[in-house]
Design a binder for these strands. Structure first.
Lengths: 119, 119
DNA sequence: TACTCATATCGATCCTCATCAATTTACTTC
DNA sequence: GAAGTAAATTGATGAGGATCGATATGAGTA
């Protein structure tokens, strides 16, 4: 006894209707891959600081030249991190003249929080 | 004009008291490293599915033999992923006899959600 | 048109990580 | 104690990622 590995193969059509109403099935492989992309974007200290610095800025947006110095990283590296955050849907990029301004996508952080609690 | 990179160096002691009360400073390097550890644990599709499967289990806990098959991974790999989730403070491990039972740490997911929104 | 500056992209390097096969550890049972 | 089983650990390998120097793009300016 102990590990009932084979028991769950007997009632495949019942496990969604017989249990507590709050029970939700595990996420799918595709869903997991999708969420992992977002968490990968957050899984770097410098990218977390980028998000935090952009959010803390009083104007709500920062250009790359404002972000290179506090991170102590080269400009190509910062640009690379920013691109990952944009592709993850966390930052918005707007080019005005020579400068590129980055700002938090409204509601993005709350949406990510929902990805965590909704596992 | 455009990028005001040097302006913020003039009032270093004021930026915490002159602005909106909701403004909080950017997180520190150490804080970012700490949070990145948690997000690194979430930045893998198989680990996300592990968390979801453990959470979806009606008993609230699962042993390794219940987790190897749905992930289609070898037993050492699943054990490795589980260890990372335990070290991140997301899963709790309890050994009973030959089996090791893993369960969600109560409140851990909500705490992680706070790490996201609190950036 | 030529020059400057901000940003993005490219290529290379180093390091981390996901995975597996093999082995070890630990508990149970005969 | 010997055999069997669950889980963890080890060592190796291949893929992905973080970083940098060099270069390209593109807008503003003389």
């Amino acid at each position: 006894m102990g590990c009932m590995n084979t028991a769950q193969t007997l009632e495949p059509a019942l496990d969604a209707s017989c249990c507590l109403p709050s029970e939700q099935p595990a996420i799918s492989v595709e869903d997991a891959q999708q969420r992992a992309l977002v968490f990968k974007a957050l899984a770097d200290p410098n990218r977390l600081r980028l998000l935090s610095i952009v959010k803390a800025g009083e104007s709500g947006e920062s250009c790359v030249c404002d972000l290179t110095e506090p991170l102590d990283l080269g400009q190509p590296t910062v640009s690379h991190h920013l691109k990952i955050l944009v592709e993850a849907g966390l930052l918005h990029r707007e080019k005005r003249g020579t400068w590129a301004y980055y700002s938090l996508v409204p509601g993005a952080l709350d949406k990510v929080a929902g990805l965590v609690t909704g596992l």
